[in-house]
Design a protein around this nucleic acid. Structure first.
Lengths: 226, 226
DNA sequence: AAAATCTTTACAAATTATTTATAAACTCTT
DNA sequence: AAGAGTTTATAAATAATTTGTAAAGATTTT
């Protein structure tokens, strides 16, 4: 079943869209703003995103840009604005399609089908590179550089670091980290996490006694700052 | 330079489109009906097709269906008809986008960029020779030179090396390598791969114990660095 | 028929993941 | 501020899995 994320701050719109899409056998999730949309992209891993253009905080165009930094999920932008300049901006920001309200639901569904049809099969793994602070991650080559020199990480270590990196700055609970790296069945195994955090620190930290990058947040989880 | 085919029976439309697209560094060709469009697709091998909906003989929707039988070139349909039913029909026939006349040329250009951006780059089969680092591959003769001297490879070994070479620097998973060399039905046979990687190393590596070119990424796959 | 290539098998070596044990660090209560 | 109870860090042992290699059979090509 293909997964669709709807991003809109008006509940009456999301409700209508959710109903139509669910009726056509899509698994739907919604987000009301850009931040939570980005989070849902990571957790829910949708096959397609339908987003409104005007939203508080992060608008649809900024959302496109953010998503395109890490993924090629098809994005359809909805808007009441029919101005050409806005359309061009959205499409160039990475949107795949731009539909002006009001629109027929059948047309939306057809455009969803078209977008999903030509979408490359979801590449589980990220293809774009991450780079910030002392860290650099090349996904294609599966290489990690810290302060300029390469370090070799095992698959689990790599997955863990990537997840920390993608959520840099935030505190991630033990449960979340375990679910992300080991799967949902391992959320009660905090000892795994401890061992692997230790291994990662051994490889990336300079001063072993005072971790600079992976900070522990006692009783809660860990936080990564590149 | 990317190639665009415009299909429309009204010369004044094609003329306007041709001028705008040419000005943006696209190589443009035109066709006035479906039949000649299909012919041009074969000869010209465009990267994108812009077609009018209503044409004598074969209309835009039929044209989409015909093209989709053999190719996945992005198609943008233009039409004065804004009826939802027609849009749905065109999109389901294989069109990637549907623009209702009148439209701004900037919007069309943005949609062209969007369509080309997400299109899988045309996979023209490799005929030119590859040369980098200590390696040199002559496709026509199926010859491989390492550090200046020729080495003899069996067909499967050659395919494997070429695929590694074409993706040099990247880590290729076992599944990907198996699919590329043995076919999609062999992705669960990692023992094949092991044997052939071993054979290849025997032929190209200098220090057998410490591979320099074909590096193994445990639990993931292999990476080639010429 | 001979040669070359591909497939299959078996086992040792290497790598990673998991488990266990213990010491150290932290928070909260008293 | 001290101590109980818990959580966290670390090392080391064990288990599981993957990888490298040789060699024997099967198939195809010459």
């Amino acid at each position: 079943m293909q997964k669709i994320l709807i991003v809109d701050d008006e509940p009456q719109i999301t409700r209508v869209l959710r109903r139509s899409l669910s009726a056509h056998r899509y698994e739907v999730r919604t987000a009301a703003d850009g931040e939570s949309a980005l989070e849902t992209v990571r957790d829910f891993a949708p096959d397609l995103i339908i987003t409104d253009l005007s939203m508080p905080e992060m608008n649809g165009i900024e959302l496109c840009r953010e998503i395109r930094k890490t993924s090629e999920i098809p994005i359809i932008v909805l808007s009441v604005k029919g101005e050409e300049k806005t359309k061009v901006e959205a499409l160039d920001a990475g949107a795949d399609d731009y539909i002006t309200k009001p629109f027929g639901i059948e047309e939306l569904l057809a455009r969803v089908r078209a977008a999903l049809r030509r979408a490359p099969q979801k590449s589980e793994q990220q293809t774009e590179n991450l780079s910030e602070g002392d860290f650099e991650v090349n996904f294609a080559a599966r290489q990690v550089f810290v302060r300029g020199s390469e370090i070799h990480l095992t698959p689990k270590e790599f997955d863990l670091l990537v997840y920390l990196f993608q959520n840099r700055g935030k505190v991630l609970t033990h449960r979340k980290l375990l679910a992300a790296v080991w799967g949902a069945d391992y959320t009660e195994q905090p000892e795994y996490l401890r061992v692997f955090i230790g291994n990662l620190r051994k490889k990336i930290e300079t001063n072993h006694a005072e971790p600079k990058y992976i900070l522990t947040e006692p009783w809660v989880g860990y936080r990564f700052t590149p």
